[in-house]
Simulated scan of single mutants.
Amino acid sequence: MTRKNMKEAVKQKLESPGWQKILRISNQQLAITLGAVLNAFAYVLFQMPYNLAAGGVAGLGIIVNTLTGFSPGLFYFTANIPLFILGFFTLGKWRFLFTSTLAVVVFSGATEFFIIHMPTVFTRFPITENKLLATIYCGLLIGIGSGIIYRFGGTIGGTSIITRIIYNKTGFPMSQSGLYVDVIIIAAAGLVFNWETSLLAFLALLIAGMSADFALEGASQMRTLIIITQNPEPLRYAIINELKRGVTMWQVNGGYSGEERTLLYLTVLRSRVYDVKFIINRIDPDAFMVVGVSQQTWGGYTLKKKVQAIASDHDADL
């Protein structure tokens, strides 16, 4: 197959009907909107009343609001305009705007809406006097909202634009540059408010990062197993027939001994790791196994019918 034919074949496989494209884009935009609304809800309910300036343009907006009275939602939108102009010329032009503008506009508008209407909805506002409780829920909700936005290909704008530009120009890790920017804003909050509030803001930032990872990747239920053995056939047969899982095998050589071994690679549910250990202990106690975390698995080799077909072939061979 020529390069041109290959490109055409791949393009044809990736093409989908127009209604499917519209549905996919609509679902993406709806998810980004919900994530931005959730962020704004947590921002007004838990972050603003306690001055938890947990980094980013949103945190800077709390400081500016305290010093000048400028509305945080309007400040967030205004501050992102020059960042969008900068990102337009350095991060992909229209594609960058398409994935970032919606979240910023929705967050800014929802923030202004909640600032006006939230005190009238709740009989008591703020809803708690416990700053630590507000910090925890602030981090959880903002992290989940941000994770949803990232999961569907959007960005929340703000300092993430700066960190992406730094990464593209210098290769400096985005996580580190983002942390440095956030720490500067949190330190400024400590000077404006007090250091206890600054410490709580940093805690909210950490919780938001962890909950964003959870929303982005989900709970890890799968484990990746690497088994190195000199007795591969019984192990392979037991895994396929007892666990109903597929397994991939390679011939490998020991780096120290130079002896030939067989490497078995498979993924199982977290609850089935013990069963694999039991099989190894009974069949090949000298085997070496490494257990790793897998966020997601995808593909046909985990389908029951295929595993049953493989098991049938092994039964016929034996």
Rank of each mutant, 00 (worst) to 15 (best):
F77D: 00
A103G: 14
S108E: 07
P173C: 08
A110R: 05
A189E: 05
F84V: 03
I142A: 01
T120F: 02
E112R: 05
N130F: 02
V192K: 00
I142V: 11
F125L: 13
R95H: 12
F114G: 04
P72Y: 02
G87W: 03
V183D: 06
I115R: 15
T128N: 08
R95W: 09
S160M: 12
E112P: 10
T170H: 07
G154L: 04
I162A: 14
M118G: 00
N168G: 12
E129P: 13
K131T: 13
Y150W: 11
Y150C: 01
T155E: 02
V105F: 12
Y137L: 15
G87P: 10
K131F: 10
V121F: 14
R124P: 03
L91V: 01
I165E: 08
A79Y: 13
L140P: 06
G109P: 07
L86N: 05
T101D: 03
G171N: 09
L133G: 09
I85T: 11
Y167T: 04
K169F: 10
D182E: 08
L179S: 02
G158N: 02
D182Y: 07
A110W: 07
T135F: 00
G157D: 08
R164Y: 06
I85S: 11
I142F: 04
F122L: 15
I116N: 01
R95E: 07
S108Y: 10
S160T: 14
P126E: 10
I185P: 08
L133A: 14
L191E: 08
T135H: 01
I162L: 13
T90V: 03
L133R: 04
L191N: 05
V106D: 09
I186T: 06
I81E: 12
I85D: 10
S160A: 15
A103H: 13
Y180E: 04
G87N: 04
Q176F: 13
A79F: 15
V192G: 05
P126Q: 12
S71T: 07
V106N: 06
I127K: 06
Y137D: 05
L191I: 14
A189G: 15
M118K: 08
T78M: 14
A79E: 07
K169L: 15
F75C: 03
C138F: 01
G190M: 13
L191M: 15
T120G: 05
G153K: 03
Q176V: 09
I85L: 15
F193R: 08
T120M: 09
G147P: 04
V121S: 00
P82H: 15
S108M: 02
L102A: 04
M118E: 00
S175C: 02
S175N: 09
S160E: 15
F172K: 04
L133K: 08
P72D: 01
